[in-house]
Amino acid sequence: MIKIIITFVTLIYSSLSMALEALAEEEMQKVLGQGGVYLSGDITINDNGGPLNVSGATIGDVWQKSCIPTSTDVRCGARIAVNAGDGANSGWLVLDNIRGRFSFEGLTLKTRTIDSGFDGDGVIFNSDVLEIGLPNTVSYGGVSYTLANSSEARPTDSGFSQTDIFSVNINGDVSLRGNLLLFPTGTP
């Protein structure tokens, strides 16, 4: 937006003093962009469960599973099921019972030119990167998930059986500092 305004003002100014003129490269170089984006987030996933519905059925106890945080009902929590394929005999690798609260302050997103530092690599690199600034602290509130193997994609499918491999519970702060730099590689 600022760019548009600056361009506009420049145009008005030049039209006042003389006829319209093309903007020279040097003048465009003086235009500054905004500094990027600063994000803070607070995400709660299936904090109190959320039973998976049987297709079509909306009555009965299908919606009424007790999904308090200590519940181990397989219908509670979010579920991601992936089939790596191998015909009719295949099953599903599952990240199950995903729930809890993640919050962070100060995830930043901006572009940056690197032409120095990195023990001498910066000078050679001399290019733009997308910088994702990691928040210094990520707070977890009762976050849990279970890694499992399952015969069916959903616990409501017929013939469902599941082998839980392990569960992870996190409650507290995790330090996550630094920047993730993304940039194109190869010879386009």
Partner: peptide
């Protein structure tokens, strides 16, 4: 072969 490069700068993970 054109891809996306990833570098972690000034990184610390502690949990």
């Amino acid at each position: 072969g054109e891809g996306i490069g990833l570098v972690l700068e000034d990184f610390i993970y502690n949990a």
